[in-house]
Design a protein around this nucleic acid. Sequence first.
DNA 1: CGTGTAAGGAATTCTGACACG
DNA 2: CGTGTAAGGAATTCTGACACG
Lengths: 109, 109
Amino acid sequence: MGEDTSYKSRKVITIGVVSELTGLSERQIRYYEERKLIFPERSERGNRKYSFSDVETLIEIANKREEGVRTYEIRQDMIKKNNLAKDEKLRNKMLRGQINARFGIQKNQ
Amino acid sequence: MGEDTSYKSRKVITIGVVSELTGLSERQIRYYEERKLIFPERSERGNRKYSFSDVETLIEIANKREEGVRTYEIRQDMIKKNNLAKDEKLRNKMLRGQINARFGIQKNQ
DNA sequence: CGTGTAAGGAATTCTGACACG
DNA sequence: CGTGTAAGGAATTCTGACACG
C-alpha cells in the first residue's frame, strides 16, 4: 500500500517483452494506450516502459475483448472500479478519524 | 519461497533499462555476466533479459567494486553465501522430518 | 583485470497513414 | 471500432576486437 517502488508497479518492461508476456501484438498494446486503458512511462528516448501491473491489466483487457467488450466499456468499468476503491479508502480514513477522536491516537488498529 | 513466477525473479528487463536502474554501463553489465556474477535469460532473438533480483545483485556488485573488490572475490563470496543458504534449508528440512517422525504429520508449524 | 570505444549488422521501437469492415 | 501492414528513420543490442594499464 503506497509502496510505489514495489516491483509490481515499476515501469521497466519494453513493449516487445510485454507482447511476449501477454500474447498481444504491439499494435494492440499501443492502441489500448490510445484508448486510455494503460499508461506506460517513456524512456528518455521515448520508448514505452510497462510494469507487471500493466501486464496484468492488459491480460484482463484481452479477456474482455475476447468476450466482445468494447474498449470504451472497458474504460468505463475501470473508472468505476477505481472510484469504488477511492470511496472505500476515504470511508476507512474517516472511520479511523472517528475512532481516534473517541479513543485517542493509537498506533495500528 | 519457491515462488518462481514472482515479480522479483521474472526476467523481463532489457539491458538498457538495467543500465539506467543501476548506473552501470552496458559493457560492465555484460562483463559481470562473463565473470559469472549474473545470469540473464535471453529472448528468442538473443537479447538479454534481467530480473529485479539481478538489478539488486548488480547494485551490490557495483558497491563492492567501488571498494576495490575483484570480480573473482565477489564470485567466491556469492558461492559461499549460496552454500550457507542451502545448508540452512537442508538443516530445516531434516529438523521438520524429525519432528514429523515423533509427533506425526502436521500442516504448517 | 576491468572498462572504454569504434565497427557492422540485425532486431526494436516509434509515428503517421492506408486498409478493411 | 479494432487491428494489420508497409514505410522510413532513429535508437538498441549483439559480438569480437583493439586499447590501456
